[in-house]
Design a protein around this nucleic acid. Sequence first.
DNA 1: TATTGTTATACTCTATAACTATA
DNA 2: TATAGTTATAGAGTATAACAATA
Lengths: 155, 155
Amino acid sequence: MRKKIKDQVSDKDDAQATSALEELVGYNLKRAYLIVLEDFRAALGEDGLAPRVFSALSLIVQFPDITQSALAKMLGIERSGLVAIIDELERRKFVHRTAVPNDRRVQALVPSEAGSKTYHVALEAVRRHETELLSDLSCEEKDTLLKLLRKIRDN
Amino acid sequence: MRKKIKDQVSDKDDAQATSALEELVGYNLKRAYLIVLEDFRAALGEDGLAPRVFSALSLIVQFPDITQSALAKMLGIERSGLVAIIDELERRKFVHRTAVPNDRRVQALVPSEAGSKTYHVALEAVRRHETELLSDLSCEEKDTLLKLLRKIRDN
DNA sequence: TATTGTTATACTCTATAACTATA
DNA sequence: TATAGTTATAGAGTATAACAATA
């Protein structure tokens, strides 16, 4: 009885092949995401940009003067959740909030020189991490994967 | 100036096409995962099984008498994190911890009749949710996606 | 010594609701 | 009335470290 269980558990391929979970997109998305996430953090190091901070900085560099509301929308998160992210970017002098003439409610987000530089260095590190982590996938497979993942988001 | 920003932000396709983020597997995995996660929760309802509880129950039904350590390993989480999940399954009478003769450290996890039934009903709900949510993807595309996601996990 | 289950604790990420200052 | 940013707060989900019981 115990022997049988052990076999089932240790025989990973068999488990993967037969488990209902393995046929679910959600479960497989989560497992894959957590693997990439962990490797991302390891690649950027202890004091490196956290994934969500990296994403925010990326869009601020690409769209300087973007507002927090617009950025939150692009990132798919709530405005309130973005505050801590921008706080960190400002604390580290990578971004600063600047007043906007015609609407005093708004604060435009502007990347600093250091912010831009840090971002581009981090981006290269992230690309290396993905290239290495996903070396089992061909370029074509990676393209296909990206296309399918975006299709889920585009609904 | 403000106009220009607004255009950039509202033009989603352009943003997606040109953003460095959009070329990253990690970012796209996360976005897709969160969409599926949210829909999963909506599909199973307020008092439905949480994703991680569903996953645990699925493997317990498939591998009755599995130990917590073995289950944690299959799920890719820590033993300590599994305790609350099993607590909930036991509280809801879907699973019970049972003593194992030859090793008194171990407690085998056994699904109840109600647990099995609840699982199979939930599985059908999950399958419907995925079918509906991912209706833009062909069966072939879904298979490809699953294959690629598993490939990331298999390292 | 090593392993199983457990507890305590903390961290990350996110959401909701309510506030303020502006529009 | 509505919007932008903010705060307070709570809830998932996870990890690490230490412990007791057992091997």
